[in-house]
Structures are given as structure tokens and as C-alpha cells.
């Protein structure tokens, strides 16, 4: 019997359609973009970014008597490249504001707003929320806006995250001390491993956080790795290596060590074929190099007893040089048994 034909809309397609309609219902009017006069925008006093530069400064220039003159100058400098691109093509992503009386308060986009003022614009594209979003939502929007910015330090990101977490607890009436990885990943919309890293650093001891606050540790992954090492001496070792500039791979190697075997060299790659049981001292065609190696070794005072055997070498004869080195290795082995 022939197979009965059934025509159905594929699951992927019908799910996609369903999600689209749901999203349209849920977010209708949430993200309307309009053009807002810059002079009606003000900062939210609780904005976690701490630029010293004010809208007043951007508008009328920094007063030379301003105690923060140097810092503000620097900030204007750093905004100049955005300002130039705004001059050419406007802002790419609209800022986010909410209505606050006659004014619009910034939820996200302080730097874009300042740069637009510097670029000499009079208005800016903004997503307008109808009212002040609840604390959690505002922090989350700021987080989303900031998360892709490279110039936010790990410390600044952690501070924002701490505020998000406490807003989250407050909103849900939780008295817990610590957020779970799943909650955190849902909250800020990142993968669980990434959320686990943030959680580890949030829960880290004050000592480690101190280094983060002073920008001595800037990598989330490194900080999370150190925070999760249980053994205190290993932890300290990893911390020191990190401050000395060790890479993540090296820190992972330290973290994987058993306590008290810090000095042990970890074999990272299993070699193929026969086991290697000796050391090849290498090959060179450059006689000068061979000469240098020999001279350097013989300069070592501890080796003066064997120096006598290598006074006369014929540096024009490769075979003779090879023999000399074979002899050298043999003598050294005798000294080091």
C-alpha cells in the first residue's frame, strides 16, 4: 500500500510563528524609538557608571577651576571617537530613557548621550519607557547595554551585578545570601558556565576582590578560577602567579595540582610512539654557536676540573667538534650521578 501523504507545517516553523506572535503581544509598545531633544535628558542619579563628566560640562566646556579638570578632559578625549562617528552617521543603537516629569531619565546610554552633545547634536534617538522601570529591570537593561562594552572593568561589572542580585532578592522577597548559578544565568541571560564564573567571583573573599577593585586582576575567568581553589596554599600560589601575569592555562594547571606538590612538572601532552628516555642536545651547523656553548660551560667555576680536557679543539672539523661534545656530555654525566 502506498504511504499515506500527510502535509503538516514543520515544528520548527510553527514554533517560530508561535513565539513571534507571543513576543509581539508581550512587548507591544515596549521599545518605541523616538527622537528626543538632548537638553531634556538627565542622568539617573543611581546609574552605576561613574563618569565625572556632566552634561553641563559637555554643553559648555569644563571650567578650568574644576577640581576634576584633568579627569574630565581625559573623559572628553575618550568620547571623541564616538562623537566623530555620531557626527558622520548618528548613533547606531538608540539610548534607553524613561519619562520623569518634563525630563527623560537615562536608563542606558550615558556615553552616547555625552558624545552626541560633544558632536554638536541637538537631539538623539531613544527608546522611551512609559514609566520608571522597577529597579531590577533598570539594572538589567543597564547590564545588557554595558555587557558588550570593552571599557567596563571587571570591578565595574561586578558592582553592577551585585546591584542586580540585590534588586532581584528584594523584588522576590528572598532573604538568601547567595544566588544560584541557574538563577543568575536566567537573570542576565548568559550561559551557565559564564554565570558560574560570575557567581564564584561574587562570592570570593575580600582579599581577592581587593585585587579586582584595583584592576590588578581583570579577567573574569582567572578571578573565578582562583576563587574556586579550595586549598589555601595553592590558592595563594595561583594568586601570585596571576599577579605576575600567568595565563589562564598556567593557572588551571596550578588549580589541578594536588596540594604540596607545587613544584611538580605536569605532563600536559602524552607523546606518541616509543617513550623518550633521553635528552637530545640539538644540532647546529653554526660552529660559532657550538663554540659559545662550550665556552659558557667552561666558564662555570664548578666545572673547572673538567675544563682541562677541552683546551684544544679544532673548530674547523665538524667530526672533531662532535667528539668533543660527546666527551663533554660524558664528563658532565660523571659529575652528576
Amino acid at each position: 500500500m502506498a504511504k499515506k501523504k500527510v502535509f503538516a507545517i514543520s515544528n520548527a516553523l510553527s514554533n517560530g510563528i508561535e513565539e513571534t506572535i507571543q513576543a509581539a503581544h508581550d512587548y507591544s509598545g515596549e521599545l518605541r524609538v523616538e527622537v528626543v531633544p538632548l537638553k531634556r535628558i538627565e542622568v539617573d542619579p543611581e546609574n552605576p557608571r561613574d563618569l565625572a563628566l556632566t552634561f553641563e560640562d559637555a554643553n559648555h566646556g569644563i571650567s578650568p577651576t574644576d577640581p576634576q579638570y584633568a579627569r574630565k578632559e581625559q573623559e572628553i578625549e575618550s568620547l571623541q571617537s564616538i562623537a566623530n562617528s555620531i557626527k558622520d552617521q548618528g548613533i547606531i543603537n538608540p539610548i534607553v530613557v524613561y519619562k520623569f516629569g518634563e525630563k527623560y531619565r537615562l536608563v542606558a546610554g550615558e556615553r552616547r548621550t555625552l558624545a552626541s552633545i560633544i558632536a554638536g547634536k541637538t537631539d538623539i534617538q531613544a527608546k522611551i519607557l512609559d514609566s520608571k522601570p522597577n529597579d531590577l529591570k533598570i539594572r538589567l537593561l543597564q547590564w545588557i547595554e554595558n555587557v558588550e562594552r570593552s571599557d567596563l572593568s571587571l570591578w565595574e561589572r561586578l558592582n553592577n551585578l551585585e546591584k542586580i542580585v540585590s534588586a532581584y532578592f528584594e523584588k522576590n522577597n528572598l532573604s538568601k545570601k547567595s544566588i544560584s548559578v541557574t538563577e543568575l544565568s536566567n537573570l542576565i541571560g548568559c550561559t551557565k558556565p559564564h554565570a558560574a564564573n560570575y557567581k564564584a567571583v561574587l562570592d570570593a573573599d575580600p582579599g581577592l576582590k581587593q585585587y579586582i577593585s584595583t584592576n590588578q586582576i581583570r579577567s573574569l575567568e582567572k578571578a573565578a578560577l582562583i576563587a574556586t581553589i579550595q586549598t589555601s596554599d595553592l590558592k595563594e600560589h595561583a594568586l601570585n602567579e596571576c599577579l605576575a601575569g600567568a595565563n589562564l592555562k598556567r593557572l588551571k594547571a596550578i588549580a589541578a595540582q594536588k596540594p604540596n606538590k607545587i613544584a611538580q612538572i605536569k605532563k600536559s601532552v602524552e607523546s606518541r610512539g616509543r617513550q623518550t628516555t633521553s635528552v637530545n642536545l640539538g644540532i647546529t651547523k653554526n660552529v660559532g654557536v657550538a663554540q659559545l656553548v662550550l665556552d659558557s660551560i667552561l666558564k662555570n667555576n664548578a666545572l673547572s676540573p673538567i675544563a682541562i680536557h677541552f683546551k684544544q679543539v679544532d673548530w674547523n672539523d665538524y667530526r672533531a667538534i662532535n667528539n668533543t661534545f660527546k666527551q663533554l656530555v660524558k664528563k658532565l654525566e660523571e659529575l652528576h650521578t
Binding site: 516553523l13 506572535i21 513576543a23 509581539a24 507591544s28 509598545g29 521599545l31
Partner: peptide
């Protein structure tokens, strides 16, 4: 055609995001 519907629904969705309550777009 049904794949086409899906594409159009995306445009409609995007547009609903930025409409005010007194100026809606109705599918």
C-alpha cells in the same frame, strides 16, 4: 508561502515594539 508568513510576522513584531498604545498596528 507559509515560510513567507513567518518572515512577515517578524516585520509586524518589530513594528509592534515601537508603537504607542494610541497608534497601534493591528494584524
Amino acid at each position: 508561502s507559509i515560510e513567507g508568513i513567518y518572515g512577515m510576522l517578524q516585520l509586524w513584531k518589530q513594528e509592534t515594539y515601537c508603537r504607542t498604545p494610541n497608534n497601534p498596528i493591528t494584524l
